[in-house]
Design a protein around this nucleic acid. Structure first.
Lengths: 230, 230
DNA sequence: TATTGTAAAATCGTATACGATATAATAAGC
DNA sequence: GCTTATTATATCGTATACGATTTTACAATA
């Protein structure tokens, strides 16, 4: 950039603008697992220098989405089958706790809101929206627990396990099973049956866990069949 | 710095060196809650420029220990009574889950190791070591669950709730109560009684939660008495 | 052809430079 | 004397510069 063109934009806010975009690119799969994150390239894309870009990458590193390798730069993390299984384990712990705390606080409006999301779910044909609707339904039931940090952790874990959203649609033939479980869950909540709701939720998450594990098994088999390449 | 003195050190590793030191300074209270983190000053202290220092601060921001305010710079986070209560809630969920998964995997060596830490505990007179020994005892029982991420989250939460380690010693007259509970916990684990161990652990953490809440109440009363100053 | 060595290019990580903004210090008006 | 405007200073946030390191391209050798 020449001397005359050395224009300074308004100070601040760069990092906060970049982090959510990068996160979305990683979670959606635009930036694939294991891919190197070239700093000059990304900086140019976001129209900033490397300094704020690297700050953004460091935040995503602390989030567990990006990994810095010494003198090699930043990479999108590659998660193993065990990593995913563990994230579902943690989800069981946190989401059951949130639901347990939330059920006594649920009011009519909360239940209506959750019901609306479920109806949107059924009407939605674009499968790329399913993951988002799923998260919104779950959070609608958890948020009355009034624990901001707990909710934030749950959201982060959902997003990360949802890394599979593209794969999930090939895995799950349809929406029947999760939809059914969502209905049961909402019913238990409406009855104020915290124990029952938690049991349903636990099974719901553990089923997802098993599906992801099965996906990994199939994938590794296929890779082995093809001689370990790609 | 003059032209001749423009020495370049070995590339890399600055951020990784700075983050743990800054974290320790915050958790130990050397950097007090709410305090502004002057970038030039800290950069000089760590003998680096602002660029890697800011990257370190961004990581601690994602960790929840530091807060950036637009165009005001970075500050040590100030945690409210509710924040602390919530962190203990999350600890209940995560640590009970970890213990539940760990108990069936516990072998003789694990129990011996935990017992040693407990003995060190009793022998240790320097109260500043108590917090560290406490964490090590708990982790010794959790680690056989073989969940790296879960363990990492628990460690982080322990460190954060331990922000009170300086205050805790003024709060708790001695070590009798926690020590007694630790003994009970270890006994239940030795018997392979996962359910019993989890119950003891839950009570143990919830007692800490109540003590911290009480501390906050007393503190806010004292502040009110003194006219809200300091 | 496969392997090793070497030079060129790409990329990283950090120091410095500098405009933008916030805070403190000072002066002007009431 | 107290409040408001103004200047000075401190501090932030980011662009650029540049040495260090890694990666790639290519030649030399077996």
């Amino acid at each position: 950039m020449g001397d005359a063109a050395r224009e300074f934009k308004v100070n601040g806010a760069s990092v906060w603008r970049i982090v959510p975009q990068l996160r979305e690119d990683i979670l959606s799969g635009s930036l694939a697992a294991g891919q190197p994150l070239r700093q000059d390239e990304l900086a140019a894309k976001f129209n900033v220098s490397k300094v704020p870009l690297r700050e953004a990458l460091r935040q995503l590193e602390a989030d567990g989405l990006v990994e810095f390798r010494p003198r090699r730069g930043a990479f999108v993390v590659e998660l193993t089958a065990d990593d995913f299984a563990e994230m579902f384990d943690i989800r069981v712990a946190l989401e059951c706790r949130a639901l347990e705390l939330a059920v006594p606080n649920l009011v009519e409006a909360d239940l209506r809101f959750a019901r609306e999301i479920l109806d949107d779910y059924a009407a939605q044909e674009d499968y790329r929206e399913w993951s988002d609707l799923n998260l919104r339904f779950h959070l609608a039931l958890y948020e009355p627990c009034n624990r901001h940090r707990l909710i934030r952790m749950i959201r982060q874990l959902h997003e990360k396990t949802g890394l599979f959203r593209r794969l999930h649609i090939t895995m799950v033939s349809g929406l029947e099973r999760p939809n059914l479980e969502h209905e049961e869950l909402l019913n238990a909540c409406a009855k104020g049956d915290a124990g029952g709701a938690v049991t349903i939720l636990r099974g719901h998450i553990e089923t997802s866990q098993k599906e992801v594990a099965a996906h990994f098994r199939r994938q590794s088999l296929r890779v082995a069949d093809h001689g370990g390449r790609n």
